[in-house]
Design a protein around this nucleic acid. Structure first.
Length: 781
DNA sequence: CAGTGAGCGAGCTTCCGCTTGACTT
């Protein structure tokens, strides 16, 4: 009989811990939760005090029976899942499912994976905290109630397979709200005035900016005019020290933000790489909201700083987590060994590791010290001043290893480096003065990383869910990654030089966006619907408010089922009422006007397959074959903004382009874009041509080009093996065999291949299993 | 990755949070 069984959540953690513990301990992993509500059923017995029906998912059964056996064969079982709500629930489910004897079961927790922390944990066992477990059950059941009661309303009223939830619906709302702010934004112009002066030595230049913005061109002219004869004198010089402190070490969300800013990684990409680093033992756990560093890590950082940069660069710091709803079950994300500043491996792994290393070490380094000099320049009798600000780095401190990357959206204020030496009351000569029209900036659209930051601020979602949330709202078609073209804007420049004022105009492109999160029509309509009927769930503070209840449950001050009952009695009637609402027309539908030709009404709305325009109403008297016509909206068109004229054009398709070989050629738009149908075959229309305007000749050319390509597709066939073909594909030659495709090894000549060689390629490719993995996330059923 | 191409009346869909695994569709 084995002595002690320790169960943790992650297998990588199990491996590490087993090394610290002696032979008397066997460490296994639960791989997260082992039990949950059924996936396809409501699974909550509302009638009987919200009793959840838990099941062990099929892919966990084998694991659970192994755990059961190991527990049975051990003298003691130590449940060592994380010390937060979810971790406590995992321990409780384990205890229930494995049928553990309470006398031999202990609950232990540690916040960091160090030998001391683990030994300390072993000496301080406790029992499962059922209040904390109940807080988790309340969270789980509430999320199920919201998700499974609201989603079906969306299926009926808007579109099948949509979804709503406490987290995802608010994420979508953030993006919809922001897009509306962007569209409603009116930028306010003002003029920024900069001047270049000549010092009294006659050669040195000094640049300075006026301490206020001027409101319009009249004011600019008036101001510049008054400067022509003005005397410019240095009336104040001040110098003061400025300090910059390092950021705290990484949490999941700050790591995702910095990896996006500095390395251009997507949120999912960052997590996949971090997972790999974690599994190789290079970094601590990557899903955390804590900025805490273990004593061991602090000590190791101190040593690393001493060795590399000297005592001067060291500064002990302790950081405290302040984000809403943080549960601090882990440490911050840091290298496990501070003596390893860089690793081998692929470029992305190296880069992310380096970022984590530098961020960790920087947070124990000294402040950067700067000296900021401000020179104020008086303008004759006017009360405005020109101001020149210069910053000199006196001591780089943490900036030695970690440079700050400003947010792309913030316009950087200009500061000079070193300023030339000047004297009080020194007279200056104006060389040039420029007043440039500037505009207030619209709020920025969300990126993946900035959305994560906002969600975290609101306490919505957890480190393990930030990446999946972004996936979900895209899978549902609420949000897309997209580009928005910039607009050209003219701006005025007024220059004063040699006592002359001249005005010119320049152009700039503004508002160009790439890869930002944009709401789709479906996203907007679902959001507006939910905002109308479920404003409380969509409230940005909803999660924060229910978290307070969960906290009270965890403290033992509130019974979890009572909290749920209070919520359900408020929520369910709204669900009932909303389901009963009969809308005359479809949710989100918009009447554009009437077709000038037929006099029929034209609508736009969300259809089964996305946004569509509809011409005419279905006939109410049966058997009359008066059917409405439908047409999908084009790319870049939106239900909110499309005009009647634009919509009418959609009904011009399908369109007969002409005839070829005695058959009609019809141009239309399908699921994969515009195409031509001819003689039962399909030919894509390239972007350079438009299905509305394509000519007969162009269409024939396309069809012939496709036939030509088709001919070249077959490179080789073997009589002995009719199922094997060598083909030319989009990406060069390949072998097709029994429904699968095989890429050719580099340098092979496809036309010369023998059957044996082909079979060898297939056999070899089948030997090594496909390395490529779908990105994290659930498979679609 | 290896070529797809409709139609708005019967199939089914959905939540959040914890963790990796894996052979085909």
């Amino acid at each position: 009989m084995q002595k002690n069984l320790v169960i943790v959540e992650s297998p990588a953690k199990a491996k590490t811990i087993e090394k610290f513990l002696g032979k008397d301990y066997h460490v296994m992993s639960s791989y997260g939760h082992i039990r949950d509500l059924k996936t396809k059923e409501y699974s909550i017995d509302i009638e009987h005090n919200y009793t959840p029906e838990y099941v062990i998912p099929a892919d966990k059964r084998k694991l659970v029976s192994e755990l059961k056996k190991a527990a049975h064969d051990s003298e003691n079982v130590l449940l060592a899942s994380d010390e937060d709500r979810e971790g406590e629930a995992i321990a409780w489910h384990l205890s229930e499912v494995l049928g553990l004897n309470q006398d031999k079961t202990k609950r232990i927790v540690f916040h960091e994976i160090t030998k001391n922390a683990i030994l300390h944990a072993l000496e301080n066992p406790r029992h499962i905290n059922i209040d904390l477990v109940n807080a988790q059950q309340a969270r789980r059941v509430l999320d199920r109630i919201v998700g499974f009661e609201v989603s079906p309303i969306l299926w009926r009223k808007i579109k099948p397979a949509l979804s709503a939830g406490r987290v995802q619906s608010v994420a979508v709302r953030l993006i919809v709200d922001r897009e509306r702010e962007v569209n409603a934004f009116i930028s306010e112009p003002s003029f920024r005035v900069t001047a270049t002066f000549l010092l009294s030595d006659g050669t040195t230049l000094l640049k300075a900016e006026l301490n206020r913005r001027l409101k319009d061109i009249q004011e600019v002219n008036e101001f510049l005019q008054s400067c022509i004869s003005a005397e410019f004198v240095i009336d104040d010089i001040s110098t003061k020290p400025v300090k910059k402190s390092p950021y705290p070490p990484f949490t999941t969300s700050t790591m995702q933000q910095e990896a996006a800013r500095k390395l251009g990684f997507s949120v999912t990409q960052t997590m996949v790489i971090a997972q790999r680093l974690y599994e190789s033992g290079l970094i601590t756990y990557m899903r955390t909201d804590s900025v805490n560093l273990s004593d061991l890590a602090l000590h190791a950082s101190h040593n690393a700083i001493l060795n590399a940069y000297g005592e001067k660069y060291y500064q002990f710091r302790k950081f405290h987590t302040k984000s809403k709803g943080a549960q601090e079950a882990h440490e911050a994300i840091r290298p496990t060994d501070m003596n390893i500043p860089e690793i081998s491996g692929n470029t992305q792994d190296k880069k992310l590791y380096e970022l984590i290393y530098k961020r960790t070490i920087a947070c124990q380094m000294a402040d950067a010290e700067l000296e900021r000099t401000t020179i104020s320049i008086g303008i004759g009798k006017r009360k405005e001043k020109f101001v020149a600000v210069g910053e000199v780095l006196k001591f780089d401190g943490f900036l030695h290893v970690y440079m700050e990357t400003p947010d792309e959206d913030n316009e950087k204020e200009q500061t000079n480096g070193i300023l030339p030496p000047v004297k009080q009351n020194e007279a200056l000569k104006l060389k040039e003065m420029i007043a440039a029209e500037r505009f207030t900036q619209r709020p920025p659209r969300y990126t993946e990383a900035s959305l994560v930051r906002r969600l975290e601020e609101l306490g919505i979602g957890r480190p393990s869910t930030y990446a999946p949330i972004i996936q979900t709202i895209q899978n549902r078609g609420y949000v897309v990654h997209g580009d928005k073209p910039g607009e050209e804007r003219k701006y005025a420049i007024v220059t004063l030089k040699n006592d002359k004022i001249t005005t010119s105009e320049k152009k700039e492109t503004i508002g160009l966006d790439r890869g930002k999160l944009l709401p789709t029509d479906t996203g907007i309509i679902v959001n507006d619907f939910l905002m109308e009927y479920f404003p409380d769930i969509l409230d940005y503070n909803f999660t924060a408010n229910v978290e307070k209840e969960f906290d009270a449950i965890a403290e033992g001050q509130l019974v979890w089922t009572s909290a749920l009952d209070k919520f359900y009695k408020f929520f369910h009637p709204i669900v009932e009422a909303t389901s009963a609402v009969k809308t005359e027309r479809k949710i989100g539908e918009r009447l554009l006007g009437t077709d000038p030709v037929s006099g029929e009404p034209v609508y736009v709305k969300i259809g089964r397959y996305g946004p569509i325009a509809q011409l005419g109403n279905p006939s109410l008297d049966d058997k009359k074959d008066k059917k409405p016509r439908f047409a999908s909206l084009g790319k870049g068109q939106s239900i909110e903004t499309i005009t009647l004229e634009e919509a009418m054009k959609l009904f011009d398709l399908p369109r007969t382009v002409g005839e070829f070989e005695g058959n009609e050629m019809i141009a239309t738009i399908g699921r994969f874009g515009p195409y031509i149908r001819h003689d039962g075959k399909f030919t894509s229309i390239p972007k350079s041509l438009n299905p509305l305007t394509i000519t007969e000749e162009e269409a024939i050319q396309l069809i012939e080009a496709k036939r030509n390509k088709e001919k070249q597709r077959f490179i080789k066939k073997f009589d002995e093996e009719p199922e094997l073909e060598v083909l030319n594909g989009l990406y060069g030659a390949y072998i097709a065999y029994k429904g699968k495709n095989y890429r050719l090894p580099k340098g092979s000549n496809p036309a010369q291949l023998t059957l044996e060689e082909c079979k060898k390629i297939i056999a070899e490719s089948n030997e090594k299993p496909a390395k490529k993995r779908p990105p994290m996330g659930r498979k679609k059923a």
